[in-house]
Design a protein around this nucleic acid. Sequence first.
DNA 1: GGACGTGGGAGACAGATGAGCAACAAGACC
DNA 2: GGTCTTGTTGCTCATCTGTCTCCCACGTCC
Lengths: 347, 347
Amino acid sequence: MSNKTIGIKDVALAAGVSVTTVSHVLNDVAYARISPETRDKVRTVAEQLGYGPNRLAQALRTQRTGMLGLVSEEIATTPHAGRIILGADEAAKARGYNLMIINTPGSASLESRQADVQALLERRVDGILYATMYHRNVELPANLGSVPSVLVDSVATGGNITAVIPDEEGGARAAVGALLEAGHTRVGFINNTDDVPATHQRLDAFRSVLTEAGLDGDAAPVESEVSEVHGGYEAARRILTGKNPPTGLFCYNDRMAMGAYRAAAELGLRIPEDLSVVGFDDQELIAANLYPGLTTVALPHYEMGAWATEHLIDAIEGKTDLALMALHPTILSCPLVIRDSIAAPRQ
Amino acid sequence: MSNKTIGIKDVALAAGVSVTTVSHVLNDVAYARISPETRDKVRTVAEQLGYGPNRLAQALRTQRTGMLGLVSEEIATTPHAGRIILGADEAAKARGYNLMIINTPGSASLESRQADVQALLERRVDGILYATMYHRNVELPANLGSVPSVLVDSVATGGNITAVIPDEEGGARAAVGALLEAGHTRVGFINNTDDVPATHQRLDAFRSVLTEAGLDGDAAPVESEVSEVHGGYEAARRILTGKNPPTGLFCYNDRMAMGAYRAAAELGLRIPEDLSVVGFDDQELIAANLYPGLTTVALPHYEMGAWATEHLIDAIEGKTDLALMALHPTILSCPLVIRDSIAAPRQ
DNA sequence: GGACGTGGGAGACAGATGAGCAACAAGACC
DNA sequence: GGTCTTGTTGCTCATCTGTCTCCCACGTCC
C-alpha cells in the first residue's frame, strides 16, 4: 500500500535545499556552516516525511555498517546461547549497533564455519563475535582474522585472539567454600566426563579448597558421569552409598544436581537437612524450580556477551587495541547464587 | 595483516575482461553471451582471489538484501524463542537468506517496537518475522506493513496479517485423550490464570473431550494457579486432596507438571502407578529430565519459525500472496510426546 | 581584497543492467 | 569475385542505486 520509500533527495526537494545540505544537517557535520533556520527547516521536513537513511547506501559510502556478526552454536538447545545473545544485543543496541546472528551446529565442520564467517564478511559486518555453547578450546576459521573479532566462552587453540571466559576455578572455589562455611567436612564432587577446561579446573579447585581448609583434598570422593540428570543420579548414588558418605555435594552442573536430588530422595536423605548440594550453571528452569531451590554458581553468559561486544566496538572505533588484550583471555567471575540447598551438617 | 578486500574490478583486471563481464558470468545472466572459455577464466580467477561480492553494493543496486528481520521477545528467558529462531534460521539459510534478529522485552512499548521495526526497515530487510514468546493477541507497530511480514505464535488484534499459531485445542485433546485411553475416568486439569488463548482453549478442549467420552466434563476438577512450578504444586495439592481425587492430571505446562510431581511425592502418590500426568510445552530440560519422564504436548516452535520463513520468502519472491493467507491464521499441530508418566489407573 | 557566512556540485563507494558496438561469417546480388 | 546485407557472437560503456565528503562558488561586509 505504502508508496516508494523516500530518500534524502526527497527531503532536499521538499526543504528547498541541496542534498548536500540535508546530509550535513542530519549528520551534524562539524565543519558545515548552515544557518539555524535552514537546519530547522531540514529537520522538520525530514521528520514530516518520515525519512530514515538507507543504511545500505550509507554503509557503502562510509565503509561502516554498524552491524556486528555473531556466530553462535546451538542457539536453541541450550539457554546459554540466549543469554550471550541477550548480553551482546543489549550492549550493541546501546551503542547503535545491530546484530546479525548465524547459528551453527556445535558439530559443524571448519569449512562450514568458514562459510558462516564468509557470509558475515560479505555483508561487511564491522566486527565478529564468535561464541561457543560451553567453555572450550576452538579452532578458528582462517578468515575470522580479517575484521576485529572476539571469542566468547572459548579460547583459540592457537591463542592470540581476544577472548572472554568464565572463572571456572573461582566459581568452584565459591561453591565448595560455601559448603565448608556451613560446617561440612565430608564433601564430595560429582564431575563430568568430558575433556573440557571446566572439568579439570573445577576438580582442581575442589581439591585445593579442601586441602587449604585442612582437609584431605586428594582423598575426597569424586565420581564422574555424563553431565546429564541421569549421570548425576548414578554418580550421586555411588557416592552416597559409599562408606562414610559426604554430607555436602558439589555437582558439575545443575542437571547433575537434579539427578543428585532424586538419588538423595530415594535414599531417604532430605535436602538440605541430611545433605547439602551445590550446582553450577544457574539454569533458571532447574535451579530455581527444584525443591528446595538449588544453590548454584552462575555462569556469566550475559556478561561475557556484553563484555565481548563492548570491547569489540571499542576496537572498531579505535578506542582499544584488541591485539593487546589477546595476550591473555579475560576472565569473568562466576558468582554464587544462594538458594536453599545448603545447611549445616547434622551433628 | 590482510590487505584490502578485493572487489569485482580486481577480478576483472586479473581475468583481462571488463567488470560487466565478470558480473554477467558470476550472476549467470541469461541474456549475456560469453564464450565458455571466458566464463571459465572469470570463475577461476574469482575463486583464486577469493572474491565474494559486496552484498551492500549488490543490495543497493538490486533493491534486495537477502535479509529477513526477526523481532523476537525475550530471547534469553524462554527456550521457545530459541526454537523459533532455529526454525527460521534454517529455513532462511536454505533459501539463501540471513536473519537480522532484534530482541525486545515482552513489556516493550508500542513505540519501542516501532523503533525496532524502523531499524530493520532502514537496513532494508526484504521481510519481517514478528515473533512473540507465547501465543497471544498483539497490537502491531504501524510501520510493519511496509514490507511483507508474518506473525509467529500470535495473531494481530486487528487481524489481516498472515500468522502461524499452535493448535492449542488439538494439543489439549491429545493430552486428555491419552489419559482416557489409558483407562482413566477421573481426570483433573491444572490450569493457568493468565488470560491468554491457551488458557481458554485448553480448558474447553479438556471439558469437551471428557464429555464426548461420556464423562461429565463440566464436573471435572479444575484448579488454576500461576503457571510456574509452585503454582502447579499448589493446584495439584488442592486437586489431589479433594474428595474422590482424579487419577489422571492434565497440566497447563511442564513447569506446573513439575510442581505436580512434587505434590504427588509428598502425598505418597507414585507416578505413574498411582497418578498419571501429562504436561504441555515439551521443555526438554524439564520434561525429559523429570523422573519418570513426562509425557507432554510439544509446541511447534521450530515448525512455526520455519513455516513463517518459508511463506515470507515465497511472498518476497512473488510466489505467494500473503494477503490471501492473512484471512485466517495457519494452525500447526501440537504432537503428543510420549514418555513415562502415564499408566493405567489402579483398580 | 581578504575574511566570513552559506550553501552546492561532483565524484566515490561496489556492483547490476541493458543497450550497443565491433568483428566475423554466410548468403545475396550484380 | 567483390560488395552489401543480415545475423550472430562476444564483450563493453554508460548509467543507476542512496548517501557522504572534499572542495569550490557566491555574496557581503569591513
